[in-house]
Amino acid sequence: MNSSRVALCACVLLLLGGCPQEGAPDTPRGRVEGQVAGPGVLQGDAYVFLFAPGEGPPQGPAIPRYVTAVSSLRLEAGDSRYRFSEVLPGPYRLWGFLDANGDADLSVDVLAQPGAGDWSPEAGGEVEVAAGEAVEQELTLARRMRHGPPAFRVAGEGTDGGVVTLEDAPLSLVSLSVEADGLGLLRGEEARFFVRLRDGDGDGDGDDLNGDGVPELFPQFFLRFVPRPGQAVPRESDGGVSQVIVPLLINPLPFVSVLQGDVTREASAESLQLFVVPQAQVVSVAPDGGQALTPLGAIPVGEYQLWALSAEGAFWYVPNVLGDRDSEALRSQALRFRIVRSDSRDGGG
């Protein structure tokens, strides 16, 4: 399967500050250390992560096993060395980023990622930690993010902290309008949607994520099912819970003349019209280790999050923890989404 399908699947775990893995008290630990390197003088705070093998950016957001940082004060003094102590033996994936604009916040789900002007590696590095030994590995930050996360709010009356109710079998086309909004929290550029075709495999053509012969526009939007206790969800072969999404499509008409099918072109917009595709899909692990999409016979009823994923892999979703803050300006981030049976409208709280 095309690896670009990661965009649609969206990797629903967050880049939050992970905790060291638990192990037997007498298990010998190892260390991982090295220099954070980048173009010229590094300015900002550098965050460094150890993920499980195959997890984490640019494959997608994931929960790191270990987290450390190199402060801007240390970097300015010429000390760019990072260190993970007390690491359980085993394989890991090393990744990190430089927060050049000072707007990253690892305590906030959607802000725990690089933004416009920040630096990250071209790819993560594989690390094997042995008991009682130290591993030396440089983290080279060579890729600069052009744009920040696709932060947004849903337009319309009653969408600030309320509930959007959709039917599982709508009788007509359902659309939502979203507006770019950095909420005063993101720096480096004006809040906009940057619309483009993505060429993840470098063949010069836009990625066709769903195999219908038509390349999709980014950012990608979808509703992600958030099952409550007792709700049945598909299971992975290893017993883990599969992810269920309902795709949304961007209205392409405002962008056709600008993009002209060229993967090197980009358009910006303050707002987007999204159409709900009435087809739930299960996101699971394919035999080749990639991700597979399998249609479901019915859309599960219940709570959902609305996700956006940019061509660079930056993400945003609503509701998020910003909506829990005591600020009227952030009430839009508390908006909830609910899918109900078509014969039973229930917009409950």
Rank of each mutant, 00 (worst) to 15 (best):
S257E: 05
V258A: 03
V258K: 07
Q260W: 10
D262L: 01
V263S: 00
V263N: 00
R265W: 13
R265I: 08
R265T: 15
S268M: 11
S268T: 12
E270A: 14
E270M: 11
L272C: 12
L272Q: 03
Q273P: 01
Q273K: 08
L274N: 06
F275N: 04
V276K: 09
P278A: 04
A280I: 10
Q281E: 10
Q281I: 14
Q281K: 15
V282M: 01
V282Y: 06
S284G: 12
V285R: 10
A286H: 15
P287M: 02
D288F: 05
G289L: 04
Q291E: 13
L293C: 00
L293W: 00
L293E: 02
T294L: 05
L296T: 10
L296W: 07
A298I: 08
A298E: 12
A298C: 06
P300H: 08
P300T: 09
P300S: 08
G302I: 00
G302P: 07
E303Y: 12
Y304P: 05
Y304G: 05
Q305H: 07
L306P: 08
W307R: 07
A308G: 02
L309W: 12
S310T: 10
S310E: 04
S310G: 01
S310Q: 02
A311P: 02
A311Q: 02
E312C: 00
E312V: 01
F315D: 11
F315Y: 15
W316F: 09
Y317N: 13
Y317H: 09
Y317A: 09
Y317S: 13
V318Y: 08
P319C: 10
V321R: 11
V321T: 13
G323A: 07
G323C: 08
D324M: 06
R325Q: 08
D326V: 14
D326E: 12
S327K: 09
S327H: 08
S327T: 06
R331T: 09
R331D: 10
Q333M: 08
Q333E: 14
A334L: 03
A334E: 10
L335R: 15
R336D: 10
F337G: 05
F337H: 04
I339G: 14
V340Q: 13
V340H: 15
R341P: 06
